[in-house]
Write a protein that binds this DNA or RNA. Structure first.
Length: 376
RNA sequence: GGGGGUGCGCCGGAGUUGGAGAGCCGGGGCAGACUGUAAAUCUGUUGCUUUGAGCUGAGUAGGUUCGAAUCCUACCACCCCCA
């Protein structure tokens, strides 16, 4: 259970590395598909392996706790067995739901009282319970319970929130050390840098996290609506402080261009709902640019969705057919585009890794960003 | 062949019993948004034009009236009944 730095880029802060986890190895930089409730929406586990080749996917503590609940997850002997996924898993702690369900929760020093978005019932999450639940889920990597503040955010609040996240980290760490793993494999716990878009707070938080000696350090609270430049500046700042010898995980990011920019700033791990959510809404990412497959102009285009895709579905099915599936609201449409987008994101980080190892990452990044951000 | 009924938006529905319609609801179409998933969702738009405004519009063509989607005549289309 460790992170190994394999190569540092010369012209940027990009790195190539390798995570060794209980269920396998993960080359970095890596993008992790999000599977909130025990499924990467619309995608078979088989396709995550064969068509997308993602080594690591996410689950969510808050959502899995509410449904199916820990009694069922434990009876299934953890999430790996329950969903039939034998590669590495990471669970988010529910910290993001502190942000996204802000209308339905109350934060105190002790923890967060949530009202379930499903039935309105009240539930209490603390750093200790978040760890306990994540022990029951059994992911290879588990996350600290944090508060993800909104943007914009008053500095005074951002500071108090950051300090609370730091105190909660200590409680998460203690709870983690005192609780054994439940399924015979080791888990890693990752702390999270907060601090909003305030450089001095980010610096303080990154310094705090840097001292914790974790194998993986996360950066949270970004990509919540702030300008891209702020996100990049905060990422650079955090990476300059977090230890080189640990993996750096930028939570919730991002677009393909965001990935490349943040890789060049020293990030090793990403997760984001964008490729899957946008896939369900008809947006298709390719090396040639972005396609809105619902647009009329694809109606009679019988060329493959993306002839260069790692996904066999994208090489086989035409744009006209996928557009038809979306027009008819057939489930197969979002299934094809979800596999496609994830395959593209994974190809993008594999290519980034190859160019870091080859030593020409900088030039490749610039060229790639200009082509992938075009609208087709 | 005779009798009755109904006709306006891309489609369906509501409404208009002579007094201001570019005009309600739903669907469809077209486009946009989406960043640790309350999202297979949400938003905008959907007669024409030279768009801070104007024009045309209630099956078609006439008529009555200060004023017609509404009343009258003819024709057309569709539906029902009789033969």
């Amino acid at each position: 259970m460790s992170f190994t730095l394999e190569k540092k880029d010369i012209g940027s802060d990009a790195r190539a590395g390798r995570l060794r986890l209980a269920h396998g190895e993960v080359p970095t930089p890596i993008f992790m598909p999000v599977g909130t409730v025990g499924t990467v929406k619309t995608v078979f586990q088989r396709d995550i392996e064969r068509e997308i080749d993602a080594p690591l996917i996410l689950g969510n503590t808050y959502h899995l706790y509410l449904r199916p609940g820990m009694e069922i997850i434990e009876a299934a002997k953890g999430l790996h067995d329950f969903i039939q996924w034998d590669r590495p898993l990471l669970t988010d702690s529910g910290g993001y739901q502190v942000y996204s369900l802000s209308q339905r929760r109350k934060i105190t020093e002790k923890g967060v009282e949530f009202q379930s978005h499903i039935d309105g019932s009240r539930h209490f999450f603390s750093p200790e319970s978040a760890i306990d639940i994540q022990r029951s889920i059994g992911a290879d990597i588990i996350m600290a319970f944090d508060e993800c503040p909104p943007y914009p955010c008053e500095k005074n609040y951002a500071k108090k929130s950051m300090e609370l996240t730091h105190r909660w980290w200590k409680r998460c760490q203690a709870a983690f050390e005192q609780s054994p793993a439940k399924y015979g494999h080791q888990q890693l716990l990752a702390p999270i840098v907060q601090g909003g878009t305030y450089p001095d707070l980010r610096r303080a938080s990154a310094e705090f996290v840097a001292q914790q000696g974790a194998e993986i350090n996360a950066i949270g609270g970004l990509s919540v609506g702030e300008p891209h430049e702020d996100m990049y500046d905060m990422t650079s700042l955090c990476c300059s402080i977090l230890p080189e010898t640990s993996a750096r995980y930028l939570m919730g990011v991002g677009t393909p261009a965001n990935l490349l920019e943040c890789i060049s700033r020293g990030i090793d791990m990403f997760d984001c709902v964008l490729p899957t959510r946008n896939a369900r809404h008809g947006m298709v990412y390719t090396y040639g640019g972005i396609i809105n497959i619902k647009n009329k102009k694809w109606e009679m285009d019988f060329s493959p969705l993306d002839e260069n895709s790692p996904s066999s579905y994208s090489r086989k099915f035409s744009k006209a057919y996928v557009r038809h599936l979306f027009s008819a609201r057939e489930y197969l449409g979002p299934q094809i585009t979800s596999v496609h987008n994830l395959a593209f994101f994974l190809q993008l980080v594999r290519d980034a890794r190859q160019h870091i190892l080859a030593g020409d990452f900088g030039a490749w990044k610039e060229e790639t960003i200009s082509s992938i951000t075009q609208r087709l």
